[in-house]
């Protein structure tokens, strides 16, 4: 009975794949549309995952395998240009001018990293030794040697929390939730590579959302000697030798603080992805005041969008971690299933 029903999933990141796989298991036909040439989305950028230091490639391999096992139809290098609802069915026009018919749509367009250049005072792309957490993750993943721009081993490293999050000046009032733990994870990784280095984290509030995150924070203090300083970095400047000077207030002692650093890592936040932005106009989806796609019912139907028959999965709905995304993806599949079941009853 279910085989004739088709679902188009927009975005083949981990949220899109996992929910598509689940729907496929339930017997639906699923078409995955991905704008990039590869699937997996942001998981491809990561090295080790918190809180258990598992290689991100594990997740990537799992996703590839699932796609293969369930023989999912995937259109790569394809975007959605138009969504029309005809009766109860959707007609989706792709950038290749294909028209896909679907009984339900699943939006899995994800997030983008906050552009560090927008906080000019931190000197990203101005000073060579200022990098973002994404740049650092890529360096860790590629296995290349990590040095300062001058080719030296970094002795003093600063992590700047809340870059583009909780910041009215960036236009983002919300907390991206995962930068704090990312900072802790990366601080520990850098410290284990450079045991003689001093690593500082400059934070406003440390937000460790899970039990394991808190443990990680504790071991960062205990085993790695990471220094946590409560104060938002206001600006970074460059010394003649290419080292950096950062300014913050040590709010706990109530005094302004200046420090010389070899490397500054900006923990960039999460903002709605380009695809998410596009879905707002293409499918007339409502967004919340932060720009992420709005759930129809915050408590009971988190996966339902403002349009009947269109469902949300993953970080297009708001910042979330990988484990949260997996739960969200499976619940989305069930939500779609329930919708299609009710729908066929009415027929």
């Amino acid at each position: 009975m279910n085989t004739q029903k088709t679902i188009v999933t927009i975005g083949a990141g981990i949220a899109g794949i996992e929910s598509s796989v689940a729907l496929s298991k339930l017997g639906y036909r699923v078409i995955l549309v991905e704008k990039d040439k590869t699937i997996g989305g942001k998981i491809n950028n990561y090295y080790h995952l918190f809180p258990n230091n598992r290689p991100a490639v594990d997740i990537k391999n799992y996703m590839d395998e699932q796609c293969r096992i369930h023989d999912l139809t995937i259109y790569k290098n394809t975007e959605i240009n138009k969504v029309q609802k005809k009766g109860e069915r959707f007609s989706v026009t792709t950038s290749n001018d294909d028209i896909l018919k679907a009984d339900a749509l699943l939006v899995a367009t994800g997030f983008e990293y906050f552009n560090g250049m927008q906080k000019e005072e931190y000197g990203y792309k101005i000073y060579d030794n200022v990098i973002t957490s994404i740049d650092l993750e890529e360096k860790l993943r590629s296995g290349k040697q990590i040095t300062t721009a001058q080719g030296k081993e970094p002795k003093r490293i600063a992590f700047v929390h809340c870059v583009g999050s909780r910041d009215e000046k960036s236009g983002n009032h919300y907390c991206s939730r995962l930068c704090c733990i990312t900072g802790v994870k990366q601080a520990m990784e850098l410290n284990s590579r450079f045991p003689n280095s001093l690593v500082y984290c400059f934070y406003i509030d440390l937000r460790m959302y899970s039990m394991e995150y808190e443990s990680l924070y504790r071991s960062a203090q205990e085993k790695f000697g990471i220094q946590f300083i409560r104060g938002k970095v206001s600006e970074v400047s460059e010394n003649k030798e290419g080292t950096l000077q950062i300014k913050a207030e040590d709010t706990l002692s109530g005094r302004p603080l200046r420090m010389e650093m070899d490397l500054v890592v900006l923990l960039v936040g999460m903002v709605p992805g380009q695809g998410t932005e596009k879905m707002k106009s293409v499918a007339a989806l409502e967004s919340n005041s932060h720009g992420f796609l709005e759930s129809n019912d915050w408590q009971l139907h988190k996966n339902s969008s403002s349009q009947p028959g269109i469902f949300l999965t993953g970080a297009c709905n708001g910042p979330m971690s990988i484990d949260e995304t997996m739960e969200h993806a499976r619940s989305a599949a069930f939500e779609v299933h329930t919708y299609l079941q009710n729908h066929s009853k009415h027929e």
């Binding site: 409560r230 104060g231 938002k232 206001s234 913050a248 207030e249 709010t251 005094r255 302004p256």
Partner: peptide, 18 residues
């Protein structure tokens, strides 16, 4: 109370001012 204002403060650069 993030302290960014105190950190960047021009006067705080010259004298104890929070």
């Amino acid at each position: 109370s993030c302290g960014a204002c105190t950190a960047t403060c021009s006067a705080g650069n010259l004298i104890d001012f929070n």
